[in-house]
Amino acid sequence: MKIKNEMRLEIVSKSQNEAFARVVVAAFAAQLDPTLEEIADIKTAVSEAVTNAIIHAYDQSIGIVEIVGKLFDGGIIVEIMDRGKGIENIEEAMQPLYTSKPELERSGMGFTVMETFMDEVEVTSSLGKGTRVRMVKYIKHGNEMGKT
């Protein structure tokens, strides 16, 4: 897949930046002329991944969350990366309803939402070094760049 355009954004891990991050990625994806539903899917998946970085990777501390978007003919790749504490057991973390923070009324549905709304989700993590979530969304009836 040939990358046609790319964006890179760094935010500090403050919850106020969650809306900013998802809106930026949605605006970038708009170049593919996606449907409103596809845009909503992307925004939601980005929101989940960025929230995970803020709540779990950095917990009470402040760190950098990096967001990379790449457009290719037919879709978008979104990568959300942090340099936080990492995930000990990725398989367990991705189970629906699993949460390490039930006291915060976390539903444990973040990864399930990402997997439902995006076409591909890949998580790599290293304890003490950070986590990278790579997601792909195919845009089915977009413009030249968006067409499959």
Binding site: A40, K43, T44, S47, E48, T51, L104, E105, R106, S107, M109, G110, T112, V113
Partner: peptide
């Protein structure tokens, strides 16, 4: 206009 999984816990609680 928008809700992600953070909202689920709010409603369940």
């Amino acid at each position: 206009k928008f809700m992600d999984s953070s909202g689920i816990g709010v409603f369940i609680g």
